[in-house]
Amino acid sequence: MYKIGKYTESDSMSDLINCNYSILLVISRFGISLGFGDKTIEEVCKQNDIDTKTFLIIVNMLINEESDDISINSTVSIQTILNYLQNSHKYFLQFKLPNIRRMLKAALGDRDSNVSIVIMKFYDEYVMGVTKHMQYEEKYVFPYIKDLISGNDTEGYNIEVFSKQHDNVESKLSELKNIIIKYCPVEMNNELISVLFDIFACAKDLSYHNDIEDKLLVPAIERLECNNK
């Protein structure tokens, strides 16, 4: 049975997934394994050392697409968000984006048409941009946040630096799907349909990823910076 409204800590984790299969990606990024029986969301989170409130905020953002309504005063676990984002980076860079490339190459076949060449070149350049974006966060932003939490010296950097240059990594992926739809010379086939579905889903997933950074992480760090002054 589908639930209307927000999920709470007393709801069943299995019901959450059965009604919203996209949450499978979320729980994997939290490091939650399947096989939790009839346990509640709170019980599963406690079992996996995950802050329940932060988990629910992220889940309800995804399900209800209400990121614009999230209060920046919400108490969230910064460490929980960091763990989630770092696992998301591994998913995109080590699995999802390489997998889309393989599927795209297979769908286009061996054709050497100009459009096919442009599509693959566009995709490879896009992946390079996403990789650079996420590597910057891993090298500079996340270590800065960890130092801030630990009370170490963070002179010379603040979260505003990241926020000002934070771009939407999903936008070029949206451009790619439009190029394929409008100009791809390949006849419609199952491989092409499948990879298009994956590109649409990945663009949405990356947009959601950005929302977590912009609407949850950045405000939380701004509050922490103010408290540490």
Rank of each mutant, 00 (worst) to 15 (best):
S150G: 08
E222D: 13
S150P: 08
V76M: 06
G5T: 09
V115Q: 13
E155D: 11
F142Q: 06
V141M: 15
F55M: 08
C202G: 02
A203V: 08
K90M: 08
I41L: 05
V186H: 05
I72E: 15
I159A: 05
I159C: 07
F36A: 09
S12T: 11
K46Q: 12
N60K: 14
Y123L: 04
V127R: 02
I17N: 00
D38P: 12
K90I: 12
L34I: 15
I181P: 04
L192K: 08
I41D: 00
E160C: 03
V118N: 13
E43V: 15
I145H: 02
S113V: 09
L148R: 07
I221G: 02
I41Q: 00
I159L: 04
D110C: 12
N18R: 10
V218T: 14
V118L: 15
R101A: 04
S174E: 15
V26T: 14
Y183Q: 15
K177C: 11
V195Q: 01
I193C: 06
A220T: 01
R223N: 14
E225I: 07
S88V: 07
D214L: 15
F197G: 10
I149Q: 11
V169A: 08
K3M: 14
L56H: 02
Y2F: 11
G151E: 05
Y84T: 07
I221F: 00
F36R: 05
L104M: 11
I193G: 05
I159T: 03
E225T: 09
P98L: 07
C226K: 12
D198R: 02
L217E: 04
E175P: 00
S150T: 08
F162D: 11
F122K: 00
N48K: 11
Q135T: 03
N178R: 15
F197E: 10
I145K: 03
E138I: 04
M134Q: 14
R223K: 15
I32K: 06
C45I: 13
Y144W: 00
H89T: 05
K105L: 09
Y126K: 04
I119K: 06
L97P: 05
G35Y: 06
L196V: 14
M61K: 06
S10R: 12
T52D: 01
E66A: 10
D205V: 10
Y91C: 06
I100L: 04
D153H: 02
N64R: 15
F55L: 06
N168H: 09
C45H: 06
K3N: 11
F162C: 13
T154C: 12
K139Q: 14
T154H: 01
D205G: 08
Y144F: 07
E175M: 13
P143M: 09
L148F: 07
V76P: 02
L85E: 02
A106R: 10
E125M: 14
E191C: 09
D124M: 15
I23L: 11
Q165N: 14
I180A: 04
E160M: 08
K121E: 12
F92T: 01
D38T: 14
N20C: 07
